[in-house]
């Protein structure tokens, strides 16, 4: 059995009397331990709803989700699920609980009653992983949005989750911050954490080993970045190719003999072959 098993799941939001909204429709998906998945789709496609279903914040209206064999619908096990599945949301301001940064990162480990040395060790490594060690004694209110988000990620890392879900966690960061966070995420994945990165940014999606796109609450595409980019299905999901891939496609359409590229480097490689 896969680490995350999503079996025929639907989720309905009650909006107001007599009106509801089916955000996830009969979705089935397996994610193995250690995978790096980009979950993508346009605003309203159901990505964030799915993320909240994965750590038991929402319970499926139909179907079932198993994380490491535990059903998210089992109320008694919800804290086990949340320990396994750490989530970083879009807006860091909603995730800050303490005024001083190291206290904020220590909040989770303190809550599960870890010994002091272990807490210190976890806070140290989590802050280091996001490049915020030098700020540990500062007030979080003094940080920029990007820095706050890195602290929020550190707070989740300090819980040593098995699955890390990033819900557009980089969308407010500047390019340097985004790169830094993605480097951290890649490193964590290499160390064994399963990563589910929710993003509209196709350059970021290309960093994953697998891209899953949702469309109107259903699974639309599932494959490697190059499979997904060459599928021609992205636009039907309201998504666009990353600039380098779009350029390769345009050149090909103009009769240039070039492969579809997923990254700038592969585009440059293809062009060099043609131009030299």
């Amino acid at each position: 059995m896969a680490f995350v098993e999503i079996k025929n799941v639907s989720y309905v939001y009650p909006l107001r009397e007599g009106v509801s909204l089916k955000a996830i429709k009969n979705l089935s998906l397996q994610i193995e331990a250690g995978e790096f998945v980009a979950l993508t789709g346009m605003n309203g496609s159901g990505k964030s709803t799915l993320a909240k279903l994965l750590n038991g914040l929402f319970k499926p209206s139909e179907g079932e989700i198993l994380v490491d064999g535990i059903s998210t619908s089992d109320d008694k096990r919800v804290f086990d699920i949340r320990k396994k599945v750490g989530m970083v949301f879009q807006n860091p301001d909603n995730q800050t609980v303490a005024t001083i940064i190291e206290d904020d990162v220590a909040f989770g480990p303190e809550n599960i009653g870890l010994p002091r040395e272990e807490i210190v060790e976890r806070v140290d490594s989590a802050l280091e992983a996001v490049g915020m060690s030098e700020y540990r004694k500062k007030q979080s209110s003094k940080l920029s949005g990007g820095q706050k988000q890195r602290v929020a990620i550190a707070g989740v890392l300090a819980m040593r989750p098995e699955v890390l879900i990033l819900d557009e966690a980089t969308s407010m960061l500047d390019p340097a911050g985004r790169e830094e966070v993605m480097a951290v995420v890649k490193k964590l994945n290499a160390q064994g954490i399963t990563v589910i990165n929710i993003t509209h940014n196709m350059e970021e999606a290309a960093l994953a080993k697998r891209v899953v796109a949702l469309r109107k609450g259903r699974l639309a595409i599932d494959g490697t970045p190059s499979q997904v980019f060459s599928s021609g299905l992205l636009s039907s999901c309201g998504l666009a190719l990353p600039p380098a891939a779009a350029l390769a496609k345009d050149l090909k359409e103009q009769g240039v003999d070039i492969c579809l590229a997923t990254t700038e480097d592969s585009l440059v490689e293809g062009l060099c072959k043609l131009l030299k």
Binding site: L21, A23, I24, N43, G46, T49, K52, K216
Partner: peptide
């Protein structure tokens, strides 16, 4: 009409 596919509308700002 009220687009059923606006799945995240309600959940985004929680």
């Amino acid at each position: 009409a009220l687009s059923i596919e606006d799945g995240e509308g309600g959940g985004k700002d929680v």
